[in-house]
Nucleic acid binder design. Structure first.
Lengths: 172, 172
DNA sequence: GTCTATACCCGGATAGAC
DNA sequence: GTCTATCCGGGTATAGAC
């Protein structure tokens, strides 16, 4: 059976918090054990007394982000509202959003349930249909990551593109 | 005015081809100048006689991929067909697809027109509406990258999720 | 709990000889 | 057009002293 992430000590949580501030303010290259340690005024090897390895740190950051997204979803009842919440969270925390969505998800190291809670809010917002929920999530993630990466043509009206997609899922 | 990518010499094209084979068969970690050179039986510094830097190599790979996608789109007239072509190309070339879609696009180093040609096919497939085209592209990219990264729940019926999204964009 | 020292890996890129 | 030698940077992680 898969064991999940161990509880973090108070000191470990400080490290995670510092790592997050670095990530959000300076981007993913800043998320190195040396840089995090330096920001705390210690040396990199000391971190390993508190966290098993870097993956544990990333899992903690990702679990936190899932939690926060679920909270942001709480007030949203329809697709337009949840899309706005999704886009708003990602735009406010672009580097964190990329960290939590890029590449495989190390589910065994996440806090149990965080992924499902975020997903359940999307399913509810589209009226309970899982297939439509997955498609709508893909739309939202696609819009978000293409927007964050500057992939749309310069000058594209992204509000209008979001609205077009939301209209499609609302009526389809 | 922005100058675009210089023509590649025949030897440079050989290097790009070798790089592509490495990328597709072994993944992005294999796309290093040392590994590419080794695969060609030469040393890494020699590559710089043929290509300015690694970005030039990546731009060539990306331009080729855009070209190929445009070609795959050529036979597709409606949204379902173009979505199937998109998904099929990405699934057949996952590492290349990630390379061409992840992060910012270095437009000045691409072959001129390759991005627009691929985009135009999507616009045509949704009937000419740019906003719907962007939303549909976001849906397709989102589905694709989440699928490639194993982000959907294990056992999720992705054919059904694709169909749900296509239906939404067809009717909405 | 922190330190120093270190081991090990990797990467892109340049200078100058041949 | 290729080579050797080298420079620069980076990273995760461990051992063992304090």
């Amino acid at each position: 059976m898969a064991t999940s992430a161990p509880e973090l000590s108070a000191r470990a949580r400080e490290i995670v918090q510092t790592a997050r501030e670095l990530l959000e303010s300076e981007g993913p290259e800043a998320l190195s054990m040396r840089r995090i340690a330096a920001a705390l005024g210690i040396k990199a090897p000391s971190l390993y007394k508190h966290l098993a390895d870097k993956q544990a740190l990333e899992a903690a950051l990702t679990s936190d982000a899932f939690d926060e997204i679920s909270r942001v979803f709480a007030d949203a009842n329809d697709l337009a509202a949840i899309a706005a919440a999704y886009r708003g969270y990602a735009t406010a925390h672009p580097h964190l959003y990329r960290l939590m969505t890029a590449g495989p998800l190390d589910r065994e190291r996440l806090e149990p349930g965080v992924e499902d809670r975020a997903g359940a809010a999307i399913v509810a917002a589209v009226g309970g249909d899982e297939q439509r929920a997955r498609a709508a999530w893909a739309f939202a993630h696609g819009m978000t990551i293409l927007e964050l990466d500057g992939r749309f043509p310069p000058g594209a009206d992204l509000d209008a593109a979001w609205a077009a997609g939301i209209a499609a899922f609302d009526s389809g």
